[in-house]
Design a protein around this nucleic acid. Structure first.
Lengths: 137, 137
DNA sequence: TCTTGACCCTGTAGCAGCTACAGGGTGCAT
DNA sequence: ATGCACCCTGTAGCTGCTACAGGGTCAAGA
């Protein structure tokens, strides 16, 4: 079972440029080549790339994915590190959500105050503008 | 009232490199220079940069900020466009929150399934790994 | 007067995580 | 023989900054 890069891309829902990029940064190893210098991938590559894509979908950074891959290669190891990585990531996601919630509240306030006049007395722009100091100071 | 770039940066809590960057991309106009070729900013620049920073803090993209600035220059204009921009942005923020919530749920599931063995039977890695097909197919 | 030090200048390269070319080669069908 | 889909390499672009290197300016202190 040999896959060319296009087939691997279709199988994992990954852009071919992205696959080559992963190879370039060492996330995927360089596959053997066919006579015509095409990359020839096998099942392990497919598995590895699928793993990467799932982790990416879950929002892990490439560095985190790299760490997860290394951990999963070392089968005897205690899985506490994996757990920690996931927990750290979860905490990060929660932080982001909190930030966005605050943002959302601020934006909602802004929007609620718009009463549809002209820009000259738009409350949204007013809220963004610096505290009412005369511009020609 | 003249400000050198450092003072403007301190006044608006902005890195000087960022100010120069904003100038380079045309978000701030090129200020006059002193005899020693230093940028000399006035109050309008301070106001404009403050506006930019607040909008950025609210998560507007530089392109959106650019649009807001253009809109606010045209005082006679109907402020519906401003309102629309803000609403679009709010929708975007809400979409991001929803995505992150989904992510959070998936991660929580993952973490809940970890039972602290070795990596060989770590459920987190298992969940990320491709559906149980033999690797050497 | 000289020197130190804080500030300023330009230009370029780097970060994440891809994506999009240009300009060529391969391989199969018609 | 030709067309077309696919592959190759290498490089540059995207967002929104940030971080240099390698210089110039200017005010204060010795």
């Amino acid at each position: 079972m040999e896959l060319k890069i296009g087939a691997l891309g279709r199988a994992t829902d990954t852009n071919v440029e992205t696959i080559r990029y992963y190879e370039r940064i060492g996330l995927l190893s360089k596959p053997p080549r066919t006579g015509g210098n095409y990359r020839a991938y096998g099942a392990p590559d497919l598995n590895r790339l699928s793993f990467i894509r799932r982790a990416r979908d879950l929002g892990f950074s490439l560095d985190q994915v790299r760490a997860l891959l290394e951990l999963s290669d070392d089968k005897a190891r205690d899985c506490a590190t994996v757990d920690e990585l996931a927990r750290d990531h979860l905490a990060e996601v929660e932080r982001k959500i909190a930030d966005l919630e605050a943002l959302k509240a601020a934006l909602s306030d802004l929007i609620a105050s718009c009463c549809g006049g002209t820009v000259a007395d738009c409350r949204i722009l007013e809220a963004l503008a610096p505290s009412t100091t005369s511009p020609a100071a």
